[in-house]
């Protein structure tokens, strides 16, 4: 280390001279690692089929990135882990019972249409994994909403289909949810461990929180987006959660169900598609939370995290412009032109 430092001091070059240890690929692989607990829990609850779907999504994403870059003579950047991450996130957002061609179509849409056609990593307007999922949800509305009942055994033979907690909440109300899960405490613990129907990677809140804590500790994500996202959603759920009465909703059910945690910690915080100014990030998070709850409570879909994040993605550049940081030493513009 010492020797390297000395050599560094003797190098004559243009600035910057101090470089961070962090690289894109290091951050991307860390995010992949942070998703590992949730992946394991998904595999545990939904069986080997879920693992196959994740694997197919990842392989399809990496392959389409490789083939696209190869055919356009671009620099091959599959090793940086971003395509792997897109595939993994897409797979985690799919129901465990989808046919195997679905993750392939989704990964293709995510990587080629959303990411590479816009110029590759860093130039995409929207979160690739979410566009992949939106593409699939709109293309195959039936297949994408068949939910399997989770089983604690890894190998299972008779997979029952059921509705997600949010689906029940939307169709039949909170009373039915309580009837299914027993009391409040069981409901919360089931939601917390992930023993519920849903997409492969979104169910286990505890596993997602462990991954998120790792990312926060390493400083790869900041608290601004997740806190404002979840805070706004909780507030909305509390105020408007029950029909006909204000301030009686159950924010915990809303926070722990659906893709809320996965979205808030792992997808809204995507570096490329969220604002880079802190104040702007808070506004971005508030927008995401508001739109999510608006779709959940008033919209046609039971879950709104995906569309909320995608809609806010479009506003990122405008938010960044609105909260532009003051340039050091620059004076305020003098508005005298009106005279």
């Amino acid at each position: 280390m010492d020797k390297a430092k000395k050599e560094h001091q003797l190098t004559v070059s243009v600035s910057p001279h101090i470089k961070s240890e962090e690289t894109t690929s290091r951050i991307m692989w860390s995010v992949n690692a942070a998703l590992l607990p949730a992946t394991v829990m998904g595999a545990y609850f939904f069986g080997p089929r879920a693992v196959f779907i994740l694997a197919i999504a990842i392989i399809a994403a990496v392959l389409s990135e490789y083939i696209f870059q190869k055919s356009l003579n671009r620099k091959i950047s599959v090793n940086d882990g971003s395509a792997f991450l897109t595939g993994l996130l897409l797979g985690m957002n799919l129901p465990p019972s989808v046919p195997f061609y679905i993750p392939i179509v989704g990964s293709f849409a995510a990587i080629v249409i959303t990411k590479q056609l816009f110029g590759g990593l860093g130039f995409n307007v929207f979160n690739p994994a979410l566009i992949g999922r939106a593409f699939l949800l709109i293309s195959f509305p039936k297949l994408m909403t068949i939910w399997k009942e989770p089983t604690a055994a890894f190998i299972q033979f008779d997979a029952k289909t059921t509705a997600t907690p949010l689906g029940i909440l939307k169709e039949e109300g909170v009373a039915k949810l309580m009837e299914m899960f027993g009391d409040n405490i069981t409901l919360y613990t089931q939601l917390f461990t992930g023993h519920r129907a849903g997409s492969i990677g979104e169910t286990s809140s505890i596993a997602l929180l462990i991954g998120a804590a790792f990312l926060l500790y390493r400083g790869y994500i900041s608290w601004h987006i997740p806190v404002s996202f979840l805070g706004t959603a909780a507030l909305m759920a509390w105020i408007f959660g029950t029909k006909g009465a204000l301030f009686t909703g159950d924010p915990i059910v809303h926070l722990l169900s659906g893709g809320m945690l996965l979205g808030a910690f792992f997808m809204a915080t995507d570096y490329v598609t969220c604002p880079s100014v802190r104040k702007g990030q808070i506004l971005f998070g508030i927008g995401c939370g508001f739109l999510t709850m608006l779709i959940r409570l008033k919209g046609g879909y039971p879950e709104g995290v995906m569309f909320a994040i995608l809609i806010m993605n479009c506003f990122s550049p405008i938010i960044d412009r609105g909260f532009r940081t003051k340039v050091f030493g620059a004076k305020k513009e003098i508005k005298e032109s009106k005279k």
């Binding site: 709109i138 293309s139 195959f140 509305p141």
Partner: peptide, 8 residues
Amino acid sequence: KPLLIMIL
């Protein structure tokens, strides 16, 4: 199974 999104 067609990709429904293409006619939307």
